[in-house]
Design a binder for these strands. Sequence first.
DNA 1: AGGGCACCTCGGGCGC
DNA 2: TGCGCCCGAGGTGCCC
Length: 285
Amino acid sequence: MPELPEVETVTRTLNIIAAGKTISSVVVSLPRIIQKPREPEAFAAALAGHTIEKVERRGKFIRFVLDGLVMVSHLRMEGRYGLFQADEPVEKHTHVQFRFTDGTELRYKDVRQFGTMHLFAPGEEFTQPPLAKLGLEPLDEGFTLEALRSRLAKRTSKIKPLLLNQEYIVGLGNIYVDEALHTARIHPELTADRLKPEQWNLLHQSIRATLERAVAAGGSSIKSYVNGQGDPGKFQHELLVYGRKNEPCPTCGSPIIKTVVGGRGTHFCGDCQPLPGVRHAVGSQ
DNA sequence: AGGGCACCTCGGGCGC
DNA sequence: TGCGCCCGAGGTGCCC
């Protein structure tokens, strides 16, 4: 479940372990991962001979910037990268191997096979899917209170699904959206048009603070997430509500409620995050 | 526009 | 108590 902090951590690690290396060949064991070009053989052939100059993040996507080529990679739920010696045994669920001229190789492993890779000419990647319609980077200067409000304040849908929609703001996933809403004391089902000015202010600060703290901790290591060097992130110990169903709210002590909002498992405190005009939606399951 | 589901595998939990 | 099955986990994209 890599969200912005995890993808940022992986990106930084990739810059350390893979930047500067030249690809000699690429092995694709699961064609479904390769979205563009459609043929895995074409994908592999295009990358051979190119050097990884740097690795950057856009939302939850990783951009491998090579000389004259850009590879866009999304980890979806369980994708991981790791650097190996070419002669090391290949672990199960390894779907793509980028072999380097120095005898090492970068391996992409993804148990659920949901991850994607796209290849573009430099600059072309921002004009078409999957990057074309991405929204604001919440840790950039452009993520101001006004930018947040102007995009969302007139919407009548629930705030949580809006925050998960990458067309408005990028990087938030199910974990950090629950955390940010808790910190801002906003009920996940409150519709955006009903947020008060002070709540927009709190939400803006909470999104930024939550993501910044998580990046500083190297992300969260829940289930299978491990960064490129195999070090687990530490932020899972600081999660306030996610995964804490029935545990006391760290703010007020009431049991954390778990419900479903917009089809997603949702954790919040019914006391700290009230829904005005509606009786407690007590649906702890 | 927004909700629901498909994509896929693993493992936790529950029922027998 | 042990085994086996079902379903939940979630980011994105597509369909309605």
